Amino acid sequence: LRLEVKLGQGCFGEVWMGTWNGTTRVAIKTLKPGTMSPEAFLQEAQVMKKLRHEKLVQLYAVVSEEPIYIVTEYMSKGSLLDFLKGETGKYLRLPQLVDMAAQIASGMAYVERMNYVHRDLRAANILVGENLVCKVADFGLARLIEDNEYTARQGAKFPIKWTAPEAALYGRFTIKSDVWSFGILLTELTTKGRVPYPGMVNREVLDQVERGYRMPCPPECPESLHDLMCQCWRKEPEERPTFEYLQAFL
């Protein structure tokens, strides 16, 4: 395994491009020591290896001592969030954005069929390849993070704006909380990567959403798509659509 080009840095580690087995181009995620327990990670990795779908980033291998390494397929255009905010983002029109959403829903419909939960679905965790191919990455890892700023769910590192209220408040993460996050991801797509709930801080978002506030229809977004977002944001988790439905609708 060779680490060649550093692609990015996040709160919990770095991402590199490299070569595996001398020939395969891969992405390598390294986790800061202390982010998660190697034992817990190894268990999760076994499950992650079983998830194989064309719209999920394929896991190739893991190094399960500290520092933990995760070796996955390489996606040339990086994260969907950076892609939307970058040069190419300007030229993306609604049909392409909807197609990308459908690809993500397709990957998540598979996660749904496998009775698995992602827990951290957002544009930053979707990767883009050639020809606007989108794949879901980092599934299941969020559960293992041991950082206090994260586990408190009120901490600075927790993605509260993407998280369903029952998950943020009571830790009830299910495929239905993933559906909520998918609704937020749809706003990221239609606004080219704007942060959700602009002008609001995490605490406010939690309070307002509890009181029934939902983001309005983004500019140039059809009402039918906003309606779909609002279905994803129904207060009762069981009233939210399935990913199978979302995939078919898109």
Rank of each mutant, 00 (worst) to 15 (best):
133 V>H: 14
225 L>H: 02
43 Q>V: 05
173 F>C: 10
187 T>H: 08
162 W>C: 02
124 A>P: 04
221 C>T: 09
38 P>E: 14
112 E>G: 15
198 P>S: 07
208 Q>D: 08
173 F>Y: 07
86 G>P: 10
220 E>T: 08
128 V>W: 05
151 T>N: 09
187 T>A: 08
200 M>F: 08
141 L>G: 00
50 K>M: 13
239 E>G: 13
243 F>C: 10
209 V>A: 10
94 L>Y: 05
133 V>T: 11
233 W>Q: 09
117 V>G: 03
25 R>Q: 09
37 S>G: 10
18 G>H: 04
12 F>E: 00
58 Q>S: 14
173 F>S: 07
64 S>G: 03
117 V>W: 00
191 T>Q: 09
179 V>I: 14
22 G>I: 09
104 I>G: 04
208 Q>V: 14
186 L>H: 03
151 T>P: 01
38 P>F: 11
21 N>I: 14
114 M>N: 09
103 Q>A: 11
175 I>V: 15
162 W>F: 03
41 F>E: 02
21 N>Y: 14
222 P>T: 07
64 S>Y: 10
107 G>E: 02
4 E>C: 14
135 K>H: 14
166 E>H: 05
24 T>K: 14
51 L>H: 00
236 E>I: 11
232 C>L: 12
127 L>A: 04
12 F>C: 02
201 V>Q: 10
243 F>H: 12
58 Q>E: 13
185 L>M: 09
246 L>P: 02
169 L>N: 10
218 P>R: 05
103 Q>G: 10
179 V>Y: 14
170 Y>L: 08
231 Q>E: 11
185 L>T: 05
202 N>Q: 06
122 R>I: 00
222 P>R: 08
217 C>M: 08
124 A>I: 05
47 V>M: 06
41 F>H: 00
101 A>Y: 00
93 R>V: 06
171 G>I: 04
171 G>S: 05
166 E>G: 04
63 V>P: 04
86 G>Q: 09
35 T>Q: 15
225 L>I: 06
57 V>F: 07
110 Y>Q: 07
30 T>I: 04
202 N>S: 04
44 E>I: 00
181 S>V: 01
54 E>T: 12
208 Q>N: 12
21 N>L: 12
105 A>R: 01
18 G>C: 09
136 V>S: 03
115 N>I: 06
65 E>H: 11
75 M>P: 00
121 L>K: 01
25 R>L: 12
133 V>L: 11
106 S>N: 14
79 S>E: 03
234 R>P: 06
178 D>R: 03
82 D>V: 07
12 F>H: 04
24 T>C: 08
142 A>H: 02
176 K>F: 13
157 K>G: 03
20 W>I: 14
158 F>R: 01
33 P>R: 08
47 V>R: 07
81 L>N: 13
226 H>D: 10
237 P>W: 14
148 N>S: 09
153 R>P: 10
116 Y>T: 12
199 G>V: 07
160 I>P: 03
195 V>W: 11
242 T>S: 12
141 L>P: 00
23 T>F: 11
82 D>G: 09
220 E>V: 07
220 E>D: 09
30 T>R: 11
16 W>A: 15
203 R>S: 09
164 A>Q: 01
25 R>C: 11
95 P>Q: 07
178 D>G: 01
151 T>I: 14
156 A>D: 06
198 P>Q: 07
172 R>M: 05
69 Y>H: 10
208 Q>K: 11
59 L>M: 05
175 I>A: 15
110 Y>F: 08
64 S>R: 05
113 R>L: 11
92 L>M: 14
144 L>R: 15
237 P>S: 12
242 T>N: 15
155 G>E: 05
122 R>K: 04
169 L>Q: 07
170 Y>T: 08
44 E>R: 02
241 P>Q: 08
21 N>W: 15
170 Y>W: 11
77 K>T: 11
143 R>A: 01
173 F>D: 03
94 L>P: 06
216 P>A: 09
9 Q>G: 05
140 G>L: 00
138 D>T: 01
138 D>I: 03
18 G>N: 03
161 K>R: 06
17 M>Q: 12
83 F>C: 11
112 E>Y: 15
84 L>Q: 06
192 K>R: 07
4 E>S: 15
173 F>I: 06
60 Y>V: 14
229 M>N: 07
61 A>R: 15
169 L>V: 08
198 P>V: 09
172 R>G: 11
19 T>R: 12
19 T>G: 13
107 G>R: 00
138 D>G: 02
11 C>F: 08
15 V>I: 04
15 V>N: 01
200 M>L: 08
71 V>S: 04
134 C>Q: 04
31 L>M: 07
115 N>M: 11
231 Q>D: 13
184 I>R: 00
164 A>L: 01
181 S>E: 03
148 N>L: 05
98 V>R: 14
77 K>P: 15
43 Q>W: 05
140 G>E: 01
151 T>G: 03
2 R>P: 07
76 S>H: 11
124 A>L: 03
187 T>N: 11
33 P>G: 11
189 L>V: 08
58 Q>N: 12
126 I>S: 04
12 F>A: 03
188 E>G: 02
164 A>R: 02
